[in-house]
Nucleic acid binder design. Sequence first.
RNA 1: GCCCCUGUAGCUCAGUCGGAUAGAGCGACCGCCUCCUAAGCGGUAGGCCGCAGGUUCGAUUCCUGCCGGGGGCGCCA
Length: 535
Amino acid sequence: MIRDALTQALRETLVTLGVDPLPESIALERPARREHGDWSSNVALATAKAAGRKPRELAGEIAEQLNDRLPLHVQRVEVAGPGFVNFLLDDTWLHGVLGDVVEQGVEAYARSELGAGRRVLVEFVSANPTGPVHAGHGRGAAYGDSLARILERIGHDVRREFYINDRGVQMASFAASLTARKHGVSPPEDGYHGDYITEWAAEMPDDADPHIWGEERALSEQRETLARMNVRFDNWFSEQSMVDSGAIDTTLADLRERGVVYEGNGAVWLRSTAFGDDKDRVLVKTNGEPTYLLPDIAYHRDKFARGFDLLIDVWGADHHGYVARMKAAVQALGHDPDELELVITQLVNLVKGGEPVRLSKRTGDIIELREVLDEVGPDPARLTYLLQSVDSQQTFDMDVVVSESMENPVYYVQMAHARIRSIERVAAEREVERVPWGDVDLSPLSDERELEILRQLEVLPETLLVAASERAPHKITSWVRELAGAVHRFYHDCPILRSDIAEDLRQARLWLVEAARIGLRIGLDLLGLHAPESM
RNA sequence: GCCCCUGUAGCUCAGUCGGAUAGAGCGACCGCCUCCUAAGCGGUAGGCCGCAGGUUCGAUUCCUGCCGGGGGCGCCA
């Protein structure tokens, strides 16, 4: 890696110059402006003070040393600004990047084993089985699934899980609402009033148990809708199953044994304040029923028992108030709080017809995810969800995504892939002879459009690491959009199959196209989007 | 009252471990199809990075306070 080579060269130079103390790490970054070189380091700025030197002077000495013995691929080293050391590289280093991409391919490029097989469970969506998933769930779905793909690519052993809250008051209310509609009457005041209840009630056989049938109906609906968006789960975990198996009782007994539980006011409490929570929490109510918290604890206890090293829960913003108690619960179970990560996705404000649409299931005033998929298509919906950080609220304007496709980046990105496939298709149709990879001469690649693609490809491995460690799939979105932009610009300015193009340039460009295809494909895969052959 | 997220171009948003003259798309305006897909490409205009302090060689980035927006603080789930 060029980066390591440059860092090493800088370190050796500092030693040679007798800089003391040496910095713990040497920063190397890609400057924002091209005239600042391909790589830049601020070592001189960072170390000058402690070493009792002037930054600009020190930088000058570093550059002089390096210019005397240039590292591989380095054309020259310059000093700029307050004391930056800038490296200008030969295009040959980017030709090396093309080689990495082509040789490693879609499967291997930017894949790593840094995760060391760490077992990670990502739990997301986990909508109540009392209705369809709505547009707000779509964000968590796209996020959780893409995060899982990203973590897998850096070598984690990832499982995706959906937790089914299939017992308790919500389910009872849901069943009662179905029954009411079945008999042609309105559901209870606090029941479910969506149109789908009426539709489902009509489908429900007379002898069906509304609880069991309703849950199945809701789950199959949810499963199908999520699958359309290319989101699938390895496991659907039932809350009721823990009641049946006695896991909830076992968990309570376990907590008692650990001495983190006490009785008070006729209820059973978790001493969560001992683990950083604001107040202690009730586990079993006065009426003998468990609160939602106890099954949740049992569920997480089960996750750990299954051998996962890290649990990532993706929750909506309306659940953020439970973060502290869940973290406390994990510690109460004897685990390190860092073994559970909670990602809170901020709200999605759906806009339709210029009006905000509320997402409350009970009022029936919702937009179902399937409606969104019907209107804008699964890929545009999914990319829209992945466009920005989940830390920010999102405005999802359906009209914009539907009517003005120019505003929809998914076409831009997928079109780049389709264009590349088109080049390859036409090349095949015209029976253009291809020089095998081992024999191709990449030196004709020197156009800024060509190099731009390679620079973007070069950045993927580290972009992937950042996206993974920050749990930020939207960084992959940004990366893919930039690569797509580079591809469009290249496509526009750099003809390949035209008769006036020199043969060696054509051959080199065809391999560049292959590298771009690989990069786009990897990016689209990480986002869970299709890579169309044509559009 | 307390906790979490957030405030960057007209709009929607990026901005890496703190770096140099803050970016993209859309919208606006002006150009480009004899061509491998014009769902594209090029250009112009557009900024008190919410405000005020602090930390330091350097702050959109880190810290504190204030202001605005959103969400949450149950023996509801």
